[in-house]
Design a protein around this nucleic acid. Structure first.
Lengths: 383, 383
DNA sequence: GTGAAAGCGCTAACAG
DNA sequence: CTGTTAGCGCTTTCAC
């Protein structure tokens, strides 16, 4: 950090940002009888109609591309629209039509590049179909999910895209039940509900491949540092690891669920390495977790892959230049977003809720090698 | 990539996502006279009033926390609200009140972690003040900026946060001029306008520090690979580099503006290294650019910092584990978002447009060292 | 083809 | 304290 923030106004602006959290006390001394018109003087359809000397309904027809309008009418109206710089008020249209052409996206943490990419994919697809996206951020606080679902319902979104921070939260389930609009779950699985469409990732396939790879290299002690146990990806990964290991009785698997955070990644790594049977390979179950794992390994001067092998789920931007290159279980988040949007649009078109599973891929890297010949003595290990 | 996407429906869902891009042909055989109620049967305030046996205005008063309501009235109304699961229709409120409690955020590229972080900071601050955020993504296409500004205006947002992809676009300026609501520019400078508030980063300070550091190490040929010349950060960085170099006549500076992309980063690096006076230090002007630079350096087996020194602007998540540690010109994007929100809220409170400049920081790293003693012969260099 | 009229669901005077 | 009354800006019958 260098200097303090500098504040300089253009028009002697005394700009005190922290101030006025309140909506706006309205400077008007006398309360006006009309709605306070927080929005400046903007021409409405009424003005356009008057200026063109026609009825409002005609303006409406022209603007909505109704076929039964004379060329003369069309040009008169358009002229007036131009002159007044008229912009239709979608609020009124929405209220009248009962549809907002808006979908809500409840996302756990938009600062996570994975989710940002999903949001991007969804937004592009939605916009192409004429929908805008209202985005809310639960900052990974489960109780905010329900709040946001209700908030979006009050704004009468036409549908919901949900990347919930907790699948098991009762309030969330309740809020969802009260939702009359179609919804699409993104890599989440709410067993109690079948009304929602879902786009899922095949985490099991990726984990299985990774485990086979590691076992093939000679690893016998594999750990998975997973994220929150309240979401599908974590459960799927854990299940997949346990199943994969069943096929190899000689392999000992350890699982450390927790949270999708750097802190958890670091703490779990510490715990594992200090444990009775330190793993020779770690699978980091998320990009934030990866950062924590790397930090702890670096701090201990544990070398990759000489001392320990590493696989990550969901790579991070710079991962490809990391030395050694990281073995990765990846997927295409942009496509997930796009498919989620498609699933929602399909429901608007009358389709039933659907589920689609997208593949994951395992890419080997230099971060995996044979375990050290002089494996640290498994302290107190019993036969 | 492994397998093909698997599609399995729950209720024999024939889920054809790509289908039905059209809003919804409406399955109803006979066109209803009322608005098509795309939204299911939801109780309105009318129903609540009837059920409670009171006037709508009373329901409204209770729900909006008006002081003059008897306890009896309050409980009767709340009971009806509960029973009907009533959710107020914000659309109607917005139309009536002339304010939407929504702000629009025009962002060039949400998949850029820097902008995602800014969006997060803004959203949190805005939500705390009761505002929701409508986000649009210009995918770095300048012509989309204007489109999105208009789109948000039609939705009657109360204010705009703008991270434009091009400051010089006429359409954008025009759209902005037609905007009656307050706006805040994020690290952008529209010379022709003073109506907008702005939150800026002090890029010059960071660049200056970096240059001094490099010169101190002995570098005499420094290159800046910058992003789009149509946005403030690029201009500021270029100006700062040129000014900093003026103080050191022995230093030769080269600048390669272009785009905030990996491709440009790689191409510019190639060009510079193949040029007449290859730099001994490169400053990467953006996180995507950095990726391109690193890629090209790796491909050529150019070592950092042995063969070349490297500084990056705006680090990426994994940067701290990059070997060698990267010297970085950083800033706090979350705070930028929060300050932008504050500036907007201040305007709602009646304040004039204001400008606030936030600091940047330079953090040295192992990626900078003295230039190689055997500097590559400056081919065809002239005295 | 075009106009008149009736609301979408809610709030805010204004009376009582 | 509570009810009545007018709309916010637009779309959509329904007549002409």
């Amino acid at each position: 950090m260098s200097t303090e923030p500098t504040r300089r106004g253009r028009k002697a602006a005394k700009t005190s940002p922290a101030a006025s959290a309140a909506p706006a006390p309205a400077a008007a001394p006398v309360a006006p009888s009309r709605p306070p018109a927080a929005i400046a003087d903007r021409a409405g359809m009424r003005q356009v109609a008057d200026r063109a000397g026609v009825a409002m309904s005609s303006v409406s027809r022209v603007l909505s591309g109704h076929p039964d309008v004379s060329a003369a009418m069309r040009s008169r109206v358009m002229a007036a629209v131009e002159e007044l710089g008229y912009e239709p008020n979608m609020l009124a249209q929405m209220l009248r039509k009962g549809a907002t052409q808006t979908i809500g996206f409840v996302v756990g943490d938009i600062s996570n590049p994975l989710l940002a990419q999903i949001a991007l994919g969804a937004e592009v697809a939605l916009r192409a179909a004429g929908y805008a996206m209202l985005l809310t951020n639960s900052v990974n606080q489960p109780n905010l999910d329900a709040t946001h679902i209700r908030l979006l319902q009050q704004r009468r979104v036409d549908g919901l895209l949900l990347s919930l921070s907790d699948e098991t939260n009762d309030q969330t389930i309740e809020a969802l039940s009260a939702t009359p609009t179609p919804s699409v779950l993104i890599d989440r699985d709410l067993r109690t509900r079948t009304e929602e469409s879902a786009v899922l990732s095949d985490h099991a396939a990726g984990i299985t491949q990774a485990v086979e790879h590691l076992v093939g290299l000679g690893h016998r002690r594999i750990a998975l540092i997973a994220g929150s146990p309240h979401v599908r990806p974590t459960r799927e990964r854990i299940n997949a690891l346990e199943e994969a290991v069943e096929a190899h009785p000689e392999v000992h698997a350890q699982v450390r669920p927790g949270a999708f955070t750097e802190v958890h990644g670091g703490a779990a790594t510490r715990e594992l390495l200090d444990g009775r049977r330190p793993p020779t390979a770690i699978i980091a179950g998320g990009n934030q977790i990866l950062v924590g794992v790397l930090g702890e390994l670096a701090a201990r001067q544990v070398r990759i892959p000489d001392d320990i092998s590493l696989v990550t789920c969901d790579d991070v931007p710079l991962a490809k230049f990391f030395t050694p290159t990281l073995a990765t279980i990846g997927r295409d988040p942009y496509e997930m977003g796009a498919e989620a949007a498609a699933l929602l649009l399909a429901r608007f078109g009358g389709a039933e809720p659907g589920v689609i599973t997208l593949p994951t891929s395992f890419t080997g890297g230099r971060s995996c090698a044979a375990p050290p010949r002089t494996a640290p003595p498994a302290q107190g290990e019993r036969p």
